[in-house]
Write a protein that binds this DNA or RNA. Structure first.
Lengths: 224, 224
DNA sequence: TTAACTCAGATTGGATCCAATATACAATCG
DNA sequence: CGATTGTATATTGGATCCAATCTGAGTTAA
């Protein structure tokens, strides 16, 4: 008898599972800013003890998604306008450079995949779908740069602001504009124009940031 | 009787202390690449249980300083030449941009402090002293940019390669060259030439990276 | 009335104990 | 003698328990 050898070692711990679930919930905006994350309540939800929950919360804190005060608990992080602005500025710098490095290495297959993701973004009906398609479009292109560390940091910085970004995209003109910008970025990639792709990506991110801040301004003005 | 009100709330947990101590030991190269970090041994060293140790190890893993395999333990991370190269490239991009933003905002006081740190770097006699002075010099200038998120990422990326960098600086010409480059960066800052300071910083980091990789190449060539 | 105090409940931080897994070495079989 | 299997030990992952701290309602005193 011959069997395929399969590695059955468990790769995901309870901590990993809890971390991923909470991360997803925060990024997608299901947990509101400032909401308390009680350890035993979460432990019950996942049928574990508080140990993996605490470890997951610590990881989330390192990623800037929650803030913890000793003996007082953990809440979903709230970013100020200034903090959000800085992260968009950071992303613009980093992502424009990575797309510049990616363009010369892009394969036909990667370009086609990008067009598919671009259309998925346009036709997606819910915020979760947009967010996913948006990430796939950009990251799919970035992959060609072969810079795993850059990509890891890019992911982490998008994670911090993604919930705000998704809220911004609920406005139809924001989504339409993003789609137009995606189109022109992809065109530049197809033409092999790295500088243009970088410049468009930079503008794309800064545009989204400005638009987002304007909305936040308005909303906070109303609520006060 | 009147007393000044002082906040005595403990801010550092056992986890924080263990994390900081291990982080420092790894960054300064006291723990060798691939060295095993056994939970109970470390717990004994710090007179705690394994819980804070595990949490500290998880944080270190998120920072890329150690790698963990389920049920097999944690070892000090070993970076490949390609990985080191990418991180230097990343730092060059980020730090040159941050110094560009900092220059117009630099105060006389900050410039003077930078000169002090620059001299401390030149006169420091041990690797630990160089590393400290090097960080103080660069980060002191970056502070003026008022970009805390950028700075956090800069710190994290330097952490990953600092132990290799300190080893590189043990070669006297490496240290001398670094000192000369520091001087010209500071000069550009004094003149208010942001572009020049950015360009010099970029070259400074890439130089160090190239020099470091050459040494690694040689060493690994010998050991094989 | 109001500010300070007390104490009970809630919540987190850490220690100890048990379960799951990996590794090394002895035992067994061809 | 070599490959394989069983087993003992080491080590990590997770559960439960205890200690430390915060919070807030009720109480008391100026």
């Amino acid at each position: 008898m011959k069997l395929e050898t399969i590695d059955v070692r468990q790769t995901a711990s309870a901590t990993d599972l809890v971390f991923e679930a909470l991360r997803k919930a925060i990024i997608e905006g299901e947990l509101a800013e400032g909401e308390h994350l009680r350890q035993d309540r979460i432990a019950q939800m996942f049928n574990t003890s508080r140990i993996p929950v605490r470890e997951a919360l610590q990881r989330l804190e390192q990623d800037g998604l929650v803030t913890t005060q000793r003996y007082r608990g953990t809440v979903v992080a709230a970013l100020s306008a200034v903090e959000i602005e800085e992260i968009f500025e950071f992303r613009a710098l980093l992502e424009s450079e990575v797309i510049r490095l990616a363009v010369p290495a892009l394969t036909r297959k990667q370009l086609d995949a990008a067009r598919t993701n671009l259309e998925a973004f346009a036709t997606a009906s819910d915020p979760g779908g947009w967010g996913e398609a948006n990430r796939k479009f950009h990251y799919g292109l970035y992959e060609a740069a072969d810079r795993p560390y850059h990509l890891q940091i890019i992911r982490s910085s998008l994670d911090r602001v993604d919930r705000y970004l998704r809220a911004q995209l609920t406005l139809t003109d924001g989504k339409k504009r993003a789609h137009r910008e995606h189109l022109s970025i992809l065109d530049a990639c197809e033409r092999g124009d790295a500088d243009e792709a970088a410049s468009l990506t930079r503008a794309h991110i800064l545009d989204a940031g400005r638009s987002l801040l304007a909305i936040l301004e308005k909303r906070r003005g109303q609520s006060v």
